[in-house]
Simulated scan of single mutants.
Amino acid sequence: MDEVCKHISEITELKTPVEYVCEECSKVGGRWVHLRTCQTCGTTLCCDTSPAKHMTQHFNQTGHPVVISAEPGENWLWCYEDEAFVRYT
């Protein structure tokens, strides 16, 4: 069963990607596998399957804990700090 941590439970409105690109990979001609959108600032970056792992770097630099999958048809949130995963509808 999915557990809701305090960081995820504090989210009242989901931030969705403005563009379907990793903001950092696009600056350097990099490539990504999947995208995640930060629920604190709205930045969209690549996942840990991608070579640069920009979203994890973003969490480590900013402390912004919660992301959603920016992939079409995927409806879930992940909290880096609590390692909590939650599906939503």
Rank of each mutant, 00 (worst) to 15 (best):
V67F: 14
V4I: 12
T43P: 07
E19P: 08
C46T: 12
H7S: 02
S50Q: 01
E23L: 12
V86Y: 12
G30T: 12
Y80H: 14
T49P: 00
Q61R: 15
H58R: 05
G29V: 08
C38Q: 05
W32P: 01
F59N: 02
R31C: 09
C25A: 03
I11L: 06
E83Y: 06
R87G: 06
I68E: 03
S9I: 07
T43Y: 11
T89L: 14
S9P: 00
H58V: 02
P17W: 01
E74T: 09
L45C: 07
T16I: 10
Y80K: 01
E13G: 05
H54M: 04
E23I: 08
R87P: 00
T56I: 06
C5N: 03
V18R: 08
E3D: 14
C41K: 03
T12Y: 06
S69T: 11
P65M: 05
G73L: 11
V28T: 13
H64T: 04
W32T: 03
V21Y: 12
Y88A: 03
E23R: 03
V86F: 11
D2Y: 13
G30L: 10
Y80E: 09
I8T: 02
S50L: 01
Y80L: 05
L77F: 02
C46I: 09
F59M: 05
T49C: 00
R31E: 15
Q61F: 14
E10Q: 05
Q61A: 15
M55A: 04
V18D: 15
P51N: 12
R31T: 14
V86N: 05
Q39T: 03
W78K: 10
C25G: 07
E81A: 13
T40N: 03
T12Q: 06
T89P: 09
F59T: 04
G63W: 15
E19K: 13
T62K: 00
I11F: 07
V67P: 04
E23Y: 11
T89K: 14
T37W: 01
T40Y: 04
S9R: 11
T56C: 10
F59S: 01
H64Q: 04
K27L: 15
A70Q: 04
E83K: 13
Q39Y: 02
W76D: 10
W32H: 08
V28C: 08
I11E: 10
S26A: 13
L14V: 10
T43S: 14
A52R: 07
H54Y: 13
C41N: 04
A52F: 00
A70K: 00
K27C: 13
T16V: 11
P17N: 01
G30I: 11
I11R: 00
K27R: 14
F59Q: 03
E74H: 08
R31A: 10
T62Q: 01
C47G: 04
G30A: 10
E23S: 12
M55N: 07
M55Q: 12
I8A: 00
Y88S: 01
L77M: 15
V4F: 07
D82G: 02
T62V: 01
T56H: 13
C38Y: 07
E81M: 09
D48F: 11
T37E: 08
C5P: 03
T40I: 06
T49M: 01
C41W: 04
N75C: 07
G73D: 12
E3V: 15
H64Y: 04
K6Y: 13
E23P: 03
